[in-house]
Design a protein around this nucleic acid. Sequence first.
DNA 1: CCGGAAATACCACCTTGGTGGTACCTCTTC
DNA 2: GAAGAGGTACCACCAAGGTGGTATTTCCGG
Lengths: 221, 221
Amino acid sequence: MNDMSSEQGSPASILLIDDHPLLRKGVKQLIELDTDLKVVAEASNANEGVAAALEHEPDLILLDLNMPEINGIETLKMLREEGVDSRVVVFTVSDNEEDVVAALKAGADGYLLKDMEPEELLNNLNQAALGKMVISDRLTTLLAQALQSKRTAKGPDISSLTPRERQIIKLIAAGLPNKLIARKLSITEGTVKVHVKHLLKKLNLRSRVEVAVWAVQEGIK
Amino acid sequence: MNDMSSEQGSPASILLIDDHPLLRKGVKQLIELDTDLKVVAEASNANEGVAAALEHEPDLILLDLNMPEINGIETLKMLREEGVDSRVVVFTVSDNEEDVVAALKAGADGYLLKDMEPEELLNNLNQAALGKMVISDRLTTLLAQALQSKRTAKGPDISSLTPRERQIIKLIAAGLPNKLIARKLSITEGTVKVHVKHLLKKLNLRSRVEVAVWAVQEGIK
DNA sequence: CCGGAAATACCACCTTGGTGGTACCTCTTC
DNA sequence: GAAGAGGTACCACCAAGGTGGTATTTCCGG
């Protein structure tokens, strides 16, 4: 298989996966204005999309998030599991933080919002075809916040903890054993154990491993 | 203490922490062009900075990263530990991914590059004073990549692991003890211990807690 | 066909972690 | 001044985790 598809000579091939025929039509017409881009296939759901991706091996896949049955994130994972190595750009209306983060974590190469200007979209698609990661400007702040912490407000509650217990949680989450925690805080190991015991009760967790995982996910630092 | 400092009536108070007197002078002069902003103190190192922050309780702290002795990230941590709740905006020349990520993880409320246009800087500082997170546009792509995985080249490598070991890592990261892992995989606890022993060696980690933390941060799931 | 990697199992041994209880000291609050 | 919360300390006990070894099976690649 030759790999010259994304060079200047031939336009970059694109697969559209979106459950709205009208939107696909619109996007396709827009893309046809650009001679460097070409829609080679369309699909209206996850299974069609994966099949089309395997058949056409497109340079770029434009993927909607909101689809019935199997959503975009799951579709993305399916694509990757099937060995599709096309660049995948999520194209959606959702500027929801969880969606953006989930998409990127699942290996998306871009995240564009549907309300962007047409010429801006073409611009971004060309960039994406060249291997650049494209993200709508609106999402910058959101990304930064997502990076700071994944505190999604579920799970146990930190508020009932004493300062000392919070301090010890941080050290547990750093992977330290009780002995080193004791040394660091200049108290005895026995006392550390007491604190650990108490915070396990308060957080309703069963071991320091669970505490560590929880703390990391909560972004406690 | 009244809390009207960031309202329209009085300008937002700013503390500059940077080891270059000339740069401080320049930024200060720039800020004086804007009647909504006011530099109330300056510091040339971490300790001075913390002291000044505690004394003046500024609305905003502009913090340089590259400082001798104690760097900006450490300074930021010191500030937070001392209970300073001012908004802290990192202001530096470094567009290095690790710096950006470290700063945000340490709780920075913004990250601006020193090469930005003066009026753009004032613009961003005003936004920051109003509580918005400000990030230089140049950093969007970088943030997205950082979010995909924290592969900062440090830390262990998953590639050397066998499928079984990867499987067990996920269960450890879910907080399961060896006994339950054994039950889940229909093998004996002893065998689980063997796998754990091996993966600890391969990953060069010291305990299952470290494994769990690493796996969660790496997004293994 | 042989050698090595992977997975499984068993064992003895030691370290670390978590539980229950008692106790003392300092604050703050009533 | 009594009561409670928080932090510290010590103890004994049992559970869980990790180490070092040996051994068997299967499967894959040279």
